[in-house]
Amino acid sequence: MAKVEITVNGVKHSRDVEDRVLLANFLREDLGLTGTHIGCDTSQCGCCTVHVDGLAVKSCTMLAVQANGANVVTIEGMAKNGALHPIQQAFTECHGLQCGFCTPGMIMAVAGLLKYNPNPTDEQICHGLEGNLCRCTGYINIVKAVKRSAELMSGKK
């Protein structure tokens, strides 16, 4: 067992965790933050994407102990005071989801992408979302939602 102190969405949590517990399971089972999804066993689907110290990572491919002392943001930390984050709003407007299973990870990956490239081209969006699989949408509306996110985040209505 290890003692960890992890800040998640601005709240500090101290817990004892088994050394082999994945960050994704810690978030879901210890903290009850089930917005972070687990869609595969092979680190390929990206449903579990969260930000650790500002970087988008697959929380199923990181141990909770590796996040000791870190600052984690999950999908639950995106909306502020009841208002959707612009990326969440854009996914809603553009029909960027169907079943929604991939969406939390997609949104966290988009947030990571737009941090480095606030105005990406279609090609850069596809390259930037290579780590996220969607079984429903065919990606077209996801790409639209990313472009709309970029607009909303640069202040365009």
Binding site: A56, L113, G128
Partner: peptide, 9 residues
């Protein structure tokens, strides 16, 4: 290499 999340770690 891989994807952005893999490249971040």
């Amino acid at each position: 290499i891989g994807d952005p999340q893999v490249r971040n770690r």
